[in-house]
Design a protein around this nucleic acid. Structure first.
Lengths: 101, 101
DNA sequence: GGTGTTGTTCGAATGTTGTCGAACAAGGGT
DNA sequence: ACCCTTGTTCGACAACATTCGAACAACACC
């Protein structure tokens, strides 16, 4: 089956924002922004693997990540350049820590 | 009753993103970014006034807009400076037109 | 006071999303 | 061949979102 990784220009803004508007997914994106490529299993944020797989699918279909198989694992990485090009400042604005003050 | 216009620092990022992740609300925000202050009724995007009122409430409670009474109308305006300060680049990234190419 | 305009709130219908366990698929190792 | 690890997919369920019409509130104006 196809990986279903659309071009960012084919994804409505609202879908990109919706993909980022979830706590678990935001943690995943933050981890990817810091750590580069990572296996799906490395994102243990207190949800089952079914849920995690679902969130990774949402991110992938929003055009935010790319996934490639590597043995029994799958490596996920953030499509930083493409996102920054189409939505300059979005990731920076959303990924930087936000002091409660 | 209180207007319920929280400080931006008190609103989780995901709530801000969720508020922007809707077509109707994004149109409202775009209109506000261009036209400055506007009455609620000026946002006729094919939804009923009940629905419009709901969306304005979501934007207000996400800390994105401010509302003040003016006679029988209510004037809404975007909290541009505050949003830009906390999330630099967010509004720009999201409000600028996105060519499908 | 009565009427019209402008919004808000309520209740209900409908649709979407997040979550899980269980079943399944694909690889790697022994 | 067998098993373990790693992920995905399937149903199901609960929670939340969007939408509407109708009822209500506040104000202005005659």
């Amino acid at each position: 089956m196809e990986p279903h990784e659309p071009d960012l220009t084919a994804v409505p803004v609202t879908a990109v924002l919706a993909a980022l508007a979830d706590d678990v997914r935001l943690q995943i994106v933050r981890a990817l922004a810091e750590g580069g490529e990572a296996a799906c299993g490395s994102f243990d944020f207190g949800v089952s693997k079914a849920t995690r797989s679902h969130h990774l699918k949402v991110l992938r279909e929003a055009g935010l990540t790319r996934t490639r198989a590597a043995g029994t694992s799958r490596l996920v990485r953030l499509r930083r350049d493409e996102v920054d090009k189409r939505y300059p400042g979005l990731l920076d604005a959303v990924l930087t820590p936000h002091p409660p003050a």
